[in-house]
């Protein structure tokens, strides 16, 4: 009985999260096209499932180029992921990644419910779409921290140095954008935290990767020293 109740609750929660994420991604797609055409987003609603904009001189040619770039990147990603079908994680890593995904999922569940509560009760002055996107970050960070600590994030064939270098660059770019938007006041839009807050969230996530990798390196070095002593 206890198992059935738990299963039913998990199923219901998963359905709710899936519905939320589906609407978020769908409306975000509308928002990207609107932003690329130069419009200003005035409203973003998940359960109302709509995005409102204020057009201030749009350039359809810009939006076509942006869409083409996004389409190209999508096709490239699918093509590249199809090339490397062989699993490069060993059995222990696959097990730990499963646990990491589970941790990430339940963390996202919690943060999404929190985001809904914050939005409905207007607890913080944050744009709705920013809150929705930001609610994914805790889950991502939980997954990253767990999988890196259990050496299940980087595969056996990953070039860790190159990947960390790339993460460093992306993190630095996001940090610069976030700091610049705080300095010039563009972080706040109509009295609420705007899209640039997500750059800050990204920067925090990439900083977390480096911190956990560094801590793990120190721990591993200690283990190797103890092994050498033995």
């Amino acid at each position: 009985m206890k198992g059935r109740v738990r299963f039913a609750l998990c199923l219901f929660s998963a359905a709710l999260i899936t519905l939320f994420l589906y609407i978020l991604i769908h409306e975000s797609g509308h928002m990207i096209v609107m932003l690329s055409a130069g419009a200003t987003i005035t409203e973003f609603s998940i359960f109302g499932a709509h995005v409102s904009r204020k057009t201030a001189g749009s350039d359809p040619l810009v939006s076509i180029w942006v869409l083409l770039i996004i389409l190209f990147l999508l096709v490239l990603t699918i093509f590249l992921s199809g090339l490397n079908k062989k699993e490069d994680y060993d059995e222990r890593q696959r097990l730990e990644r499963g646990k990491a995904y589970g941790l990430g999922f339940f963390t996202i569940m919690g943060s999404v419910f929190l985001a809904i509560a914050i939005d409905l009760l207007e607890l913080l002055p944050v744009q709705g779409y920013v809150l929705c996107a930001a609610s994914i970050f805790p889950g991502l960070m939980a997954f990253l921290a767990y999988s890196i600590w259990h050496e299940a994030y980087f595969s056996l064939k990953d070039k860790t140095g190159a990947l960390l270098g790339m993460f460093g660059i992306i993190g630095a770019i996001n940090l610069i954008i976030a700091v610049a938007s705080i300095c010039d006041g563009s972080m706040i839009v109509n009295g609420r935290l705007g899209l640039n807050a997500l750059n800050a969230a990204c920067a925090v996530m990439f900083i977390e990767i480096f911190v956990v990798v560094l801590m793990k390196k120190i721990s591993t070095a200690k283990e190797t020293d103890e092994e050498d002593e033995d």
Partner: peptide
Amino acid sequence: VGVSRQTINA
């Protein structure tokens, strides 16, 4: 063996 060092350690 084709696994990570951490797996052998574990």
